[in-house]
Design a protein around this nucleic acid. Structure first.
Length: 947
RNA sequence: GCGGGAGUCGCCAAGCCCGGUCAACGGCGUAAGGUUCAGAUCCUUAUCUCCUAGGAGUUCGUGGGUUCAAAUCCCACCUCCCGCACCA
């Protein structure tokens, strides 16, 4: 057993002692690797570990390749969820407090402090940081910060003044879910039952009753042409109110809602619904009556409904109900033609479903069906005037605009799935916030520049690139400030706090400053915009800026030099959920604020982590906290298990079996590390050359994979793919009773351990030490191929392997117990012909006929006439080989098969099958060949006889 | 609806960009054998079907097509997953 935790502690201490990851500018090329910083509202779990692990592997790999690689980390305190949590703690929320105690193991005394939001953030900040340290991430902790640090706030203020000066910040109105009691916007975390406060925009169609306006709320303004009457609930006490300069009649609930939508409301009087029934209202050139209906609800819309019986099942049924008791000549007016429906869709569907009264709940279903069919495939009929022929999906917006223009409509915003309650208990409403600040991501020049940056960037995996392009095209204005939460106040309007996805877009630049903040050489006190202009752009005079900002001049210069050295960002890692927001904003803001030379170079996106194939969630109880997992399984096995289970964009399935498999694999390599000593044998034999060639191959494959961040593939090469090669080598060595291969095995191990070290850094250090190396493997060079490839060794080892395979195959099929094995190698003319065939194939000629013609034309190979099938078989066997091997076959002198087989294979055959073996050439007159097999011989495919 | 992604041999999952190395990596599971007093671990072998000579057949969501050759390229269809905002 490997004492994982001891080894990890030991090496972490060493790294920390030698300040291994504290990176300063030097003469080498730099790389700046960043990851989206965490939001500290809970401990991190295995899933969070994935992105950070990928970034860490990336950073460590680059470091071994000679790059001076900085990997920093910060903590994102900005936002509202923590605020909501603090409030819930204050209220004594059982569920939350239990989560803290049982799930997160937060000490009770600490939980008490959680009424203060910052304490929550601070606690989980430390928790997450410890986890990152324990995972062995090669982070330069001197550059740590939180987004509520005073200097950070100055930085964000600068960023926003900058954006504003570039006209990227604009003001407008914006609807939000709102708690009237708290006077605050509500998001999902602020509502009882964590309901997302979604809302819908209704069109208020204004009917006129003399000089009073009767507004009706609808989602289908186009149906105005089919209106036959209004529905009024006689039992509702409506309010007559003054709305700005007009007089409206609406339900009391509606009157209340309107107040939050920028309207000034004064109640004039009450009007009973029954008083309104029977009166006639007008709109455009229409006059319609108001009829009573029980389905009309006071709390929905205005409490008055526009009736379109041809297309609205509710209206149709209410009309039928009304006409049972009253005489009325009103008929539905069809205004939409839809394939699959007849004249009056509402009638059809109501009758089909067997609905007989307006309180039937199935009317909702009926409404949905008519609505969606008509929306996507309906066309307006002739009786809709200038809109005739328009598709409903287009007509909706056109008519909406037309009504608004002619002052026949207004807007009502209403919460979906209401009532939604705030945690304080009050019922939420929709509020139209005035003077909301937006980042104008609509700006075309801005978008163009962003696209330019994306074009030049490396996006891994590249499949995700189209998604970025789509997002950039689709982005509109984005609210960039809120009225509560932790964060930085808008510099020009203290009522607003910069929203969390807007204060996290260029903070990678702040890592450079953070080091000096932490060393107290940089203080917020008198920091002004000149400071940032100097550091980021080199603008201004150092002496003056230093004096003005209260910074030592040499410190200021150093910060500027550091920034110029480390920027731009070379890679940004994140989960794919941040593609449509943070990652895109990150690029947008960089191109807005920084010159092209400082634009980011690469984005690496990864999928999420599943637990035993299922999504991790609190309710399923399958969340494994990262630190717990480290204690139980060790950091390295977890790192490997996360990486090996899926390629970048796939969801990685984490399960205990894979962790154990990995552990086993690592343990085997670890044990091997004490067995071998350095020192090459005096003379390399065929199998030595071969295995060293395979080792080169391994290095090339692995390096290529890591460069593309195909880490699963890379790990596979290191841990598994090489295994079968190694087994073959060991078998060969054993059969030959060699004792001089320790050095070769040592070299192989050293290469594998070095390549393993970005993935499993702690254990790799331990292995490296066991191998007798001085110094840390983290600082060693990434292995490079030694070009020891010797193609004749490759050919002869391949020959031996495939011959053994053939023998096994025959034995398996015939089920005979061998007494004697005889091999026959191909005649020289076949070898010649085979070489030519290989050359043709490599050149792209696989047409059998053409190849045969060619061969016959040459006296050396004209024998082919006797055995044309030889060509087909050869072509196939060459095609069945890897490309490099085909080249070798075509270009290189063939080996002497008879010699190789007799000298090397006998012992292997003896060991494998326990019998003696003889080798003849095909045309040897003295050969033993009772079954006439020899003629089947082909190059690299000796004929075979077993008895 | 718009946009993105995926359907592979029991399960997970590579391969598809760059067509032959693909009956298709690897892991898990299953089976047999070895180690063990026994079990767990570990190691070896096998794991689409057929086969007494190294072979053949049928497979990679479905149906077509291109090609000497297709899991891989093209067309159509079916099914599933994710995002669509002011929230980290």
């Amino acid at each position: 057993m490997i004492p994982w935790n001891d080894i990890e502690t030991k090496w972490r201490a060493k790294w920390s002692q030698s300040k291994e990851f504290e990176i300063e500018p030097d003469s080498r090329t730099k790389k700046f690797i960043t990851v989206a910083y965490p939001y500290p509202n809970s401990p991190q779990h295995i899933g969070h570990g994935r992105t950070y692990t990928l970034a860490d592997v990336h950073a460590r790999f680059l470091r071994m390749n000679g790059y001076n690689t900085l990997f920093p980390m910060g903590f994102h305190y900005t936002g509202t969820p923590i605020l909501g949590m603090a409030k819930r703690v204050q209220e004594g929320d059982k569920e939350l407090i239990e989560n803290f105690e049982k799930l997160y193991h937060v000490p009770p005394d600490t939980i008490k402090e959680f009424v203060e939001p910052v304490k929550i953030a601070d606690y989980f900040h430390e928790e997450i940081k410890q986890g990152m340290i324990e995972m062995g991430y090669s982070i330069d902790w001197r550059r740590e910060f939180t987004t509520i640090d005073p200097v950070y706030k100055k930085f964000i203020e600068w960023q926003f003044r900058k954006l504003k000066s570039l006209n990227f910040v604009v003001q407008g109105s914006h609807p939000v879910g709102w708690c009237p009691k708290d006077q605050n916007p509500v998001s999902q975390h602020d509502t009882l039952g964590d309901v997302e406060p979604d809302f819908t925009e209704y069109i208020l169609v204004k009917f006129h009753l003399d000089d009073v306006i009767i507004p009706t709320a609808t989602l289908r303004p186009e149906t105005i042409f089919g209106v036959t009457n209004l529905w009024i609930n006689p039992n509702i006490k409506y309010k007559k109110i003054k709305v700005d300069n007009e007089t409206w009649i609406v339900s009391p609930e509606c009157a209340y809602k309107l107040e939050f939508l920028n309207k000034s409301i004064t109640v004039i009087s009450e009007v009973s619904g029954s008083e309104l029934v029977g009166k006639t209202v007008s709109i455009l050139d229409k006059k319609v009556p108001m009829f009573p209906a029980s389905f009309v609800e006071s709390q929905t819309g205005t409490g008055i409904v526009m009736s379109v019986p041809a297309h609205a099942p509710f209206d149709y049924q209410a009309l039928v109900d009304y006409q049972k008791q009253n005489s009325s000549t009103i008929q539905p007016i069809p205004i939409i033609k839809t394939e699959g429906f007849g004249e009056i869709p509402a009638k059809e569907i109501v009758e089909k479903m067997g609905i007989t009264n307006q309180d039937d709940p199935r009317l909702d279903e009926a409404t949905n069906e008519v609505y969606s069919k008509e929306f996507y495939s309906g066309v307006l009929r002739e009786n809709t005037g200038k809109f005739a022929g328009l598709k409903v999906s287009e007509a909706k917006d056109t008519i909406k605009a037309w009504l608004a223009e002619s002052k026949n409509s207004d807007i009502l915003l209403e919460l979906n799935d209401g009532p939604i309650r705030c945690r304080c208990g009050a019922e939420c409403v929709v509020k139209l916030l005035n003077n909301q600040w937006f980042l104008n991501y609509l700006d075309q020049a801005w978008k163009d520049k962003t696209n330019q940056c994306f074009e030049k960037m490396s996006i891994l995996p590249n499949e995700i690139r189209t998604e970025f392009n789509y997002v950039v095209g689709w982005l509109r204005q984005r609210a960039c400030a809120r009225q509560h939460g932790l964060g930085t106040n808008l510099p020009w309007d203290q009522n607003w706090i910069v929203e969390s996805l807007s204060d996290s877009v260029i903070y990678m630049a702040y890592y450079i400053l953070a080091k000096y903040v932490n060393s107290r050489e940089l203080k917020a006190d008198s920091l002004s915009d000149e400071f940032f202009e100097f550091v980021f752009y080199g603008n201004g005079d150092a002496k003056q800026t230093a004096a003005k900002c209260g910074v030592q001049e040499n410190v200021l210069q150093k910060i500027r030099t550091d920034f110029a050295y480390f920027y731009p960002v070379d890679a940004r890692h994140s989960g794919r959920d941040l593609v449509p927001n943070h990652l895109t904003f990150f690029v947008l803001n960089h191109v807005a604020i920084f010159p092209e030379a400082l634009w980011p170079k690469q984005i690496v996106v990864n999928g999420s982590v599943l637990m035993d194939g299922k999504k991790m969630s609190k309710s399923m109880g399958n969340i494994i906290p990262l630190r717990k997992a480290i204690q139980d399984y060790g950091a390295d096995p977890i790192r490997l298990a996360i990486i090996i289970s899926a390629e970048l964009l796939q969801d990685a399935d984490f399960n205990l079996e894979s962790v154990n498999t990995i552990k086993g694999k690592l343990e085997a390599i670890y044990e091997d590390c004490v067995r071998h000593k350095p020192g090459m044998p005096a003379k390399l034999q065929s199998e030595d050359n071969w295995i060293l060639g395979r080792l080169d191959h391994l290095i090339i494959q692995t390096t290529g994979a890591v460069e593309k961040m195909r880490l699963r593939e890379a790990l596979h090469h290191i841990l598994f793919s090489f295994e079968s090669d190694l087994q073959w080598y060991l078998k060969r060595v054993e059969v030959k009773r060699r004792t001089d291969v320790s050095g070769i095995l040592h070299k192989i191990l050293a290469v594998r351990v070095a390549m393993l070290s970005p993935f499993a850094p702690h254990l790799a250090e331990e292995m490296w030490e066991r191998l007798g190396n001085s110094g840390v493997v983290s600082r060693s060079a990434w292995p490079v191929p030694s070009n020891s490839t010797d193609s004749s060794s490759i050919q002869s080892e391949e020959l031996l392997q495939s011959t053994i395979e053939d023998i096994k195959n025959v034995l398996k099929v015939t089920k005979i117990t061998p007494q004697k094995i005889v091999l026959y190698t191909a005649d020289p003319w076949k070898v010649k012909a085979f070489g030519k065939i290989a050359a043709s194939v490599v050149a792209g000629q696989t047409n059998i006929g053409a190849i045969i013609k060619d061969l016959i034309a040459n006296p050396e190979t004209e024998n082919i006439k006797k055995d044309p099938d030889f060509v087909k078989k050869s072509v196939n066997s060459i095609l069945a080989e890897p490309e490099e091997m085909r080249k070798i076959r075509a270009e290189l002198e063939p080996i002497n098969e008879t010699a190789v087989l007799s000298s090397e294979l006998s012992a292997l055959v003896k060991k494998e099958f326990g019998v003696d073996m003889q080798v003849f050439t095909e045309s040897d007159t003295a050969k033993y060949d009772p079954k006439n097999k020899a003629r089947m011989a082909r190059p690299f495919k000796p004929a075979l006889y077993i008895e």
